[in-house]
Design a binder for these strands. Structure first.
Lengths: 221, 221
DNA sequence: CGGCCGTTTTTGACTTGTCAAATAAGAATA
DNA sequence: TATTCTTATTTGACAAGTCAAAAACGGCCG
C-alpha cells in the first residue's frame, strides 16, 4: 500500500493533469510548486514512483500516471471528497474548513469506514464544493464547466468552486455563492477586470474580480 | 506538537503505568514489548522524550510520565475512546473492529472534529468497551474494578472489557457479555481454571477459562 | 565473593523523505 | 552559432525512527 506521502504525490499529479489531454505530461516543477517541495525532491520521488509502476517518468519531459497510479489517486480523491461531505453533513463543520481536515483524514480512514460513510450519505455524487465524488469502482467523471470569469452577461448555475482557501469560501457563502446557486452576471468591465453579479435570493448586486470569478465554475442556465 | 510516534509511546506508557502507584516506573522492556519494538529503540526514544520534557528517564530504572507527557497521553486516550464510541454509535461499526480503526484515526483528527464528536455523542463517559473517556480538561478517573477471574460465585455487573482482540470481542457479544450485562458466576472449578457463567437474558450457561475471564472487569451487584 | 543470566544501553547501519547548492540540459535570444 | 535563461537533475547532507548485535549492568545463586 502506498504511504500517505505517495498518496499525496499521486493525488496532486491527478489534479494537475485533469483537463489536460490524456497524452500530456505533468512537469516536476509544477508538482514541486503544488506540494511546496524543492524540485530535486520531486525528481527523486518521480524515479521512485516510476520504479513502483505508479507512473511513467521521462527525464526532462515529465510524468504521466499509469493505471495503477491513476487508480490509487482516484481512490484518495474519493476518500477526500466523501470525508469533506461527511464533515459538513454529519458533523456540521463549516465548509470553509473541511478541506484541511480531509487532507489529514484521507490517509487514515480504512475502506470499511469509507464505505460506511458513503452508505450513510446515500452514495453522493458531489462534495460540498461541487467536486464530483468518484465511485467505489474508481470512475471519475468530470463535467466540462466554464469559469465565470470567461462568461458573458447572462444567467448561470454555480456548480463548483475550485479553491479551498477558508477566507475565500467564507466570503462566498456570505454572498450566497454556493454550489447550486443561480447567479446572474449583470455586467462586466473587461478593462477593469471586474464582474457585477447578483445571486438569486440575495439582496443586492456585488462586484467580484476576475481571479476570484475564475474559481467559480458554472453551467449555462 | 508530538508526532504520532511520540503519541503512541506516551499512550503506551500511560497504559502500562495505570494501576501502579504513582511513584512506580515503567521499564523499557515492557514498552518495547507492548509496541513491538527492540529495547534499543525504546532506550533511544526515552532519552529523547526526557529531553523534550515528556517524562523522566532514569537509566536502568525506567521511565515516569511528567505532567506534560501525562497530559498529552490522556488527550490521545480521549481521542481514541471518543472515536471508538463514534464509530459504533454513529457509523454503526462492529465493536470488535473499532479499536484498530481508532488506532489510526486518533492521530489524524483535529481538536475541532474531536470536540464535535464529543458534543454529538452527548459528552459520553464511557467507550464501547467500558473504558472511561477522559474529559476535555484531561481528567481521567479510573474506577477500581475486579477481574471476573478473581471473583467467587455471585452476581456481578460487567463494566469493562480490557482486551481488543476482534475474535474475542465477537465471541463475547455472541454470549451477551457486553458492558452493562448482568452476569452470574454460577460455579468455578479452580483446579481446571474454568468458570461457569450465565448472562441475564441469555438462554444457557456456558464455560469460560480464567485468562478469558481475566479481561472482564466487574462490579459487585 | 565470583560468576552467570537477563535486561539495558551502546554502536553502527539502514530507510524514507526532505533540502541546498552545484551541475546539466534545453529553449530562447541575440 | 554563441549566450543566456529557465527548468531539471545530481550530489551530499540531514532528521526521524528503526533494527541487529556487541558491550555493560546489576542481581541472584552457589
Amino acid at each position: 500500500m502506498p504511504t500517505s506521502t505517495v498518496e499525496n504525490y499521486l493525488k496532486t499529479i491527478l489534479r494537475l493533469s485533469a483537463g489536460l489531454e490524456p497524452a500530456a505530461m505533468v512537469s516536476p516543477g509544477r508538482i514541486a510548486e503544488a506540494l511546496n517541495l524543492t524540485p530535486g525532491t520531486v525528481t527523486t520521488m518521480m524515479k521512485h514512483l516510476d520504479r513502483e509502476g505508479y507512473l511513467r517518468y521521462q527525464p526532462r519531459q515529465g510524468v504521466r500516471l499509469r493505471p495503477k497510479g491513476q487508480r490509487a489517486a482516484v481512490q484518495v480523491l474519493r476518500r477526500h471528497r466523501l470525508i469533506e461531505l461527511f464533515l459538513v453533513e454529519i458533523l456540521r463543520l463549516d465548509w470553509a474548513h473541511v478541506h484541511e481536515e480531509a487532507e489529514l483524514l484521507e490517509h487514515a480512514l480504512s475502506d470499511r469506514v469509507v464505505e460506511r460513510i458513503d452508505e450513510m450519505l446515500g452514495r453522493p455524487a458531489y462534495d460540498p464544493h461541487g467536486d464530483p465524488i468518484p465511485g467505489a469502482d474508481g470512475v471519475l467523471r468530470e463535467e466540462r464547466l466554464r469559469p465565470l470569469s470567461e462568461c458573458s452577461e447572462g444567467v448561470y448555475e454555480l456548480v463548483r468552486v475550485v479553491r479551498e482557501d477558508p477566507e475565500y469560501l467564507t466570503w462566498l457563502r456570505e454572498q450566497g455563492l454556493v454550489p447550486g446557486a443561480q447567479v446572474t452576471l449583470e455586467m462586466r468591465d473587461r478593462l477593469a477586470g471586474i464582474l457585477l453579479l447578483k445571486v438569486r435570493g440575495g439582496k443586492t448586486s456585488f462586484r467580484i474580480g476576475e481571479p476570484a470569478a475564475g474559481w467559480l465554475l458554472v453551467r449555462v442556465c
